[in-house]
Amino acid sequence: MYLRKHHIFILNVMTWLLWLTVMFCASLIGPGTSGPTISWSWDNPTIFDLRVTRIIAAGAVGAALSSAGVLLQALLRNPLADATVLGIAGGAAVGVTGFTLYGPALLSSTISLSVFYTWQPWGTPLFALLGAFAAAGAVFWLTRQQRGGPAMDPLTLLLTGVIVNACCAALLVFMNALAPDANKRLELSIYMMGHLQDGLTTQSVLIATIATGLVWLTMLRFAGAFNIATLRSSEATTLGINLPGIRLLMFIGATILAALTVPLAGPIAFVGLICPHLLRLLLGSDQRQLLLLAPPMGGILVVVADSFVRTTGVWFNGDLPVGALTALLGGPFFLLLLRRGEYRHG
């Protein structure tokens, strides 16, 4: 199925508008005594602020994960790739957790705690980026060309990434168990599923949202070359792109996008995997169109799922992790898509 140009334009406008509408509607729903209720909360500025902050965070997380998924699947020429598979998500989670659990204790001799908390909204994403680049860099280093074999062989890359990610998860468990401040320890079973963090400040959400937007725009600027970068190396070389440069750009862009979501929501799996597939089902494989529609697709998915878990706490003894919902609903849907013959993964 290939859409005509004006259909694609209409689809773009509709999807972006739908995203805004979904976010607006989500701001009208709150938790009631027996389930979600429509509650105008504009008369209570505190609740409204908390709710809007969380909805914007959910939107930014979905947008970033979905865009990172599109970039990684194109970069690795593999429909199985997403941020958890390359170790990006695990590395970022280690960075964030290390900073929040150990930062105060390690830095207390040099700076006062109030300074630490002032800079925390900047420090957390910074350490997420450090962790993500360290883990993903290790994956690429371990997969580098060896003994005349193929450079960055996709299978080796995926296998190495899965192992590095598992090591990061294990490291997280140890770091959590050894944390100096017992009160700050994470509920890992919830954290590892991916969950919009409690007590997100407007500042930290704004930093992540603006950074996500800027990186996404930068990627969009070069998106035409991404189509050619999905070809075999020898072909792409003669089609007018600087292949190593473009691949590095995609890698850096995807790592930043995925890493920035971790301080907000932990390592959410699945959104980055499923959104590119849904988009390709709608649009075909033109990377420019995929990247253009990735933010609303992921944004809608995460905002809807998070609004559900945010307002149905009374049904489940507290909030469910949003990652549990996206995986539980998305998994069977995805399997259904795979069963349909006309869709060929890519």
């Binding site: 020429r77 999905t230 075999r232 020898s234 390709r280 075909g284 494989s285 033109d286 060929r344 890519g346």
Partner: peptide
């Protein structure tokens, strides 16, 4: 360049 064959990762 005209290769002998290719594998296209996505459905172009």
């Amino acid at each position: 360049y005209v290769p002998q064959d290719t594998d296209v990762a996505f459905t172009y």
